[in-house]
């Protein structure tokens, strides 16, 4: 998976983001949705293949690496 960061109004939906990016419903994780990280700045979770198709004019693509608990 990859994280796509977009700039949309606070009331924007996942459909709005997909439309902006030219992606289909299957490209994104609908359960994850569109998550606000700061005013006017949101992220969605998409497949890595979809991330490669996204135009950098509309969005920034970030890694979504695995995180793990630390054990001694």
């Amino acid at each position: 998976m990859a994280l796509i960061q977009v700039r949309l109004p606070p009331e924007a939906t996942l459909s709005d983001a997909l439309r902006l990016l030219g992606l289909s419903d299957e490209d994104a994780d609908p359960d994850y949705g569109l998550v606000a990280i700061a005013p006017g700045l949101q992220v969605l979770r998409v497949t890595e293949e979809a991330a490669r198709r996204v135009s950098r004019d509309h969005a920034d693509v970030f890694s979504d690496p695995r995180i793990e608990p630390g054990d001694g």
Binding site: D60, V61, S63, P65, I67, P69, G70
Partner: peptide, 30 residues
């Protein structure tokens, strides 16, 4: 109490999508 152990699933440092070294990554922003 968790973190990124391996750079393998991350973009390399210097790449705009990197997490480990990048204050602009969405998680570091939030």
């Amino acid at each position: 109490s968790w973190g990124l152990f391996s750079p393998r699933m991350d973009f390399p440092p210097g790449h705009p999508g990197n997490y480990s070294d990048n204050p602009a990554h969405p998680f570091n922003v939030i």
